[in-house]
Simulated scan of single mutants.
Amino acid sequence: MENMYFTEEHLLFRQSLKDFLQKEVVPHIEKWEQTGTIERFIWEKFGEMGYFGLATPEEDGGLGLDLFYTVIFLEELQKINSGGFAAAMWAHAYLAMTYLNKRAKGDIRKKYLEPSAVGKLIGCLGVTEPYGGSDVAGMRTTAVKRGNTYVINGSKTFITNGVYGDYIILAAKTDASAGNKGISIFVVDRKAEGVTANKLNKLGWRASDTAELAFDNVEIPEENLLGEEGMGFSYIMEAFALERLVMGINAHARAEYALEYALQYMSEREAFGKTIDQFQALRHRIVDLHADMEICKHYNYFVAGRLDKGEYVVKEATISKLKSTKMADEVAYECLQFLGGYGYIEDYPMARLLRDSRLGPIGGGTSEILREIIAKIIIDKKEYRPTTN
Rank of each mutant, 00 (worst) to 15 (best):
K102M: 11
A207T: 03
P130C: 08
K199S: 14
K202H: 04
P57D: 05
L245N: 04
F279K: 11
E330W: 00
G305S: 10
K156I: 06
Q34I: 14
F279I: 12
R283T: 15
Y164R: 12
T325D: 07
L113M: 11
R385F: 03
S320Y: 05
L11D: 03
T210Y: 10
G182T: 06
A178E: 07
M89N: 00
L226S: 12
F20K: 05
I159G: 02
I378K: 12
A317H: 05
A91G: 05
T35V: 15
G364N: 10
V331R: 00
F272M: 15
S116V: 09
V187L: 11
K23E: 15
F338K: 01
Q34P: 01
K105P: 03
F158G: 00
I276W: 02
I249Q: 04
E334T: 09
I29K: 08
A239C: 08
M139I: 14
K376I: 13
N389A: 10
V195G: 12
V26R: 01
W90N: 05
F186R: 11
V144H: 02
W43F: 08
G232K: 05
R358A: 13
S267L: 00
N148E: 14
V287I: 13
T388H: 11
K102S: 05
L67V: 12
Y5H: 00
S134M: 06
A291P: 00
G154N: 00
C124M: 02
G194W: 12
E260C: 00
E238W: 04
G64P: 07
C296D: 07
G84F: 08
F46V: 11
M1S: 13
Y51T: 15
E229Q: 08
F158C: 05
I276K: 01
F6Y: 04
P349Q: 12
R306N: 06
L370F: 08
L263P: 00
I249N: 01
K79T: 05
G232T: 03
L12Q: 11
L354C: 06
G341P: 10
D60Q: 07
E334P: 01
A197W: 13
T174Q: 11
E346Q: 08
G64Y: 07
A281H: 10
I373S: 00
Y344R: 07
H92W: 04
K110C: 05
F233S: 10
N224F: 01
A143Y: 03
L263N: 05
A281E: 11
L77T: 06
K323F: 15
M327G: 00
T70W: 06
N148V: 13
N81D: 09
T141K: 11
M49H: 07
